[in-house]
Design a protein around this nucleic acid. Structure first.
Lengths: 123, 123
DNA sequence: ACGCTGTCTAGATGCTTGTCAAACTAGACC
DNA sequence: GGTCTAGTTTGACAAGCATCTAGACAGCGT
């Protein structure tokens, strides 16, 4: 069902944004992840999957949490999967999804800035 | 030039995705940030600004790093600013931009998952 | 006052994307 | 085999977005 068309380039070993500027290729690669996250429905889907104890969720539980049609949920799940943020497997009648922690971590680290210091202006 | 049309709701105190599911409102709010990051040019712009020692960059230095027209860069900077990721100030002829660490941090923390453990399937 | 330079805004255009209904595939069960 | 349920794929359409050109605005220097 999945798992083969993903560009498993693992192009993500991202030091934080504050340490050095991104190359164009890195930016293109990383932007795919953020673009997938940049949609409320997808973000909620991801959070539903990530927060689930046991680590995996059946699609039927996800569709129930929205007022959207099935194909729409399916579409968003595909986008998340193609971005490498989640993966899935069919087991019998149902399809289960789980997150890919390494991918989320990579994006997290990229944005992990000192949180306070800078503020160089207005001084 | 800026600083007033921003919805400074500071709706971001995000615990990681793994701890609990997002509300619809939080998802909408947070997705704005990720959507802004989900474009290669904007990601590079942000990295150019964030990685700059001194913490701020003049627009003229940013436009020089791309083959895009000035208005396009201006547009992307506006998107980043309206997402609360950067802020700016005019000083004389030039306009300077800098990052908003708190906002980046909030998004980073949301994606900060245990990085390894889960993998509950395929066992 | 006038022009010059740096930056932003407005409007237009073509591509991308979110959504749904309809049709399809995969497994379970009789 | 037939049929039922769970999910996905396909195709269509409207809304959104990245990009450009042309024009506006803000400081600076003369």
């Amino acid at each position: 069902m999945s798992r083969q068309e993903l560009p498993v380039l693992e192009a993500s070993c991202c030091p934080p944004l504050t340490s050095e500027a991104l190359t164009e290729e890195s930016a293109v690669e990383l932007a795919k992840g953020f673009k997938a996250l940049g949609e409320p429905v997808r973000l909620r889907l991801l959070s539903l999957i990530a927060s689930r104890k046991g680590g995996e969720v059946c699609v039927c539980e996800l569709t129930g949490a929205f007022t959207l049609a099935g194909p729409t949920i399916s579409h968003h799940l595909r986008v998340l999967r193609e971005a490498g943020l989640i993966d899935c497997e069919r087991r019998g009648t149902w399809v289960y999804y789980w997150i890919v922690p390494a991918k989320l971590s990579a994006l997290s680290q990229l944005l992990d800035v000192p949180a306070a210091s800078p503020d160089p202006v207005r001084a």
